[in-house]
Write a protein that binds this DNA or RNA. Structure first.
Lengths: 229, 229
DNA sequence: CCAAAAGTGTTGTTAGTACACCCATGG
DNA sequence: CCATGGGTGTACTAACAACACTTTTGG
């Protein structure tokens, strides 16, 4: 730190990869930028961290401003800070991903976003800044952790069918799974509660509804069970 | 970004948790600070990132300056940026860990460090700043990844015995392992080469020496084999 | 010849994988 | 009565866990 003033000239931001699941596809919540640079391009929601704001607070703020949600699963993934990644100066961006129940989100446009929309992750091929790289890094991390920790439930409504859970895993991991084996594994893990309640109004045999078992779930989260799928 | 000048006043640094292994214990390379704040305290090696320097470049620079080593395993873990973590201003620090062959390191003091020394990880209970938290976060990550990826070899000399490898795993994971089962697993994974060379000058039956098989190793690294130990 | 660590197989148990048919409902 | 997805069991295979004695060297 030979000349400190040279160093205290960078900014830090949080970019948040908000994942949701809509019964068939993994989605990501994107904004269309309402200001330069990259005016009009799709981008990850994010913002600079205020001088007296902690990182996790900023991450929660971005999520809350866009979705109105609090107490959501949020995981720090990686910091990106290539010298030329931002045209306005040196900006280190700390990438988070979050998992939300898509039906609870009613996205609203804001001062920095003209438009907000859920996009299918596998169809996103261009974003402002280095956001595509950031999104893909977060996707890899989600895929890894989905197999090691029981975090899939965060993407589902409170009551779900085992088929919905299986579709979520298949969609995120991009791999087909055997129905009977999947169910055996989930049941044996002891992290779902059978509610003894059934779907209604479906044109086929109604499925049982489950919720996750909060206590066993917290236990399993800590232990980071191996969920080899 | 209502008033950009307010935001571009923070600094970014890299702190590097350099792990080594000395036949029995997992070690970490620490420096004794030669300047304020925390003058005289033990700390992680780290430095501010220069205005035109990339993050990974800074991480490699810190490692090189302290150890003379290049092309070393380096993994970004997490960014810490509590508002009050640094008394001189807002400093976001990006934590890395690296794995080095301890016998290749001849640590040298530098402008910012009075003293450099290997400390046993399990005995470190106080460090400058929030460095203890950073070290422990990196240790957890190492423990997780040691079980999922074949990175243990990075801590050993080129030629090693299977017993040395086992001791490394036991020491890092803090768990005793069965000798026969451990060997079976390692051999079956196909990532070590039997050199058909033996230890000399030991007061017991000499052990076979192995090196890791670079090609199979790179393959396994990509796949992130499950190495359930 | 003693001390020290190296090296080696088998068996029982558990988890993983592959696979096909009947059931309950709405239209 | 048809279409749709729900729900269930078994047999084979692979991986894991537990466990004890003989070998080779230096001193």
């Amino acid at each position: 730190m030979s000349n400190p003033s040279e160093y205290f000239k960078s900014a830090a931001s949080v970019d948040n990869v908000i994942f949701g699941f809509d019964d068939t596809d993994l989605k990501v919540l994107l904004i269309r930028r309402g200001e330069e640079p990259f005016y009009g391009d799709w981008a990850l929601p994010g913002d600079l961290i205020a001088p007296n704001e902690n990182i996790i607070t900023a991450a929660n703020r971005i999520l809350y401003d866009l979705t109105g949600l609090e107490n959501v699963y949020l995981e720090q993934v990686m910091t990106f800070g290539e010298v030329d990644r931002h045209p306005k100066g040196r900006v280190f961006t700390i990438a988070y991903f979050s998992l939300v129940n898509i039906k609870r989100v009613f996205p609203k446009a804001s001062s920095f976003a003209n438009e907000v929309s859920w996009k299918t992750v596998s169809e996103v091929d261009q974003l402002a800044f280095d956001h595509l790289k950031i999104m893909n890094t977060c996707l890899s991390r989600l895929q890894t952790n989905l197999r090691l920790k029981p975090i899939g439930f965060e993407l589902l409504p409170e009551r779900f069918t085992l088929t919905e859970l299986q579709q979520l895993y298949e969609s995120v991991l991009r791999k087909e799974l055997d129905k009977r084996n999947f169910r055996k594994k989930i049941i044996k893990m002891n992290i779902v509660k059978d509610l003894n309640v059934y779907q209604t109004g479906v044109a086929h045999r109604p499925a049982r509804l489950y919720s996750f078992d909060e206590e066993s779930y917290q236990q399993a989260l800590k232990e980071g069970i191996t969920f080899e799928i």
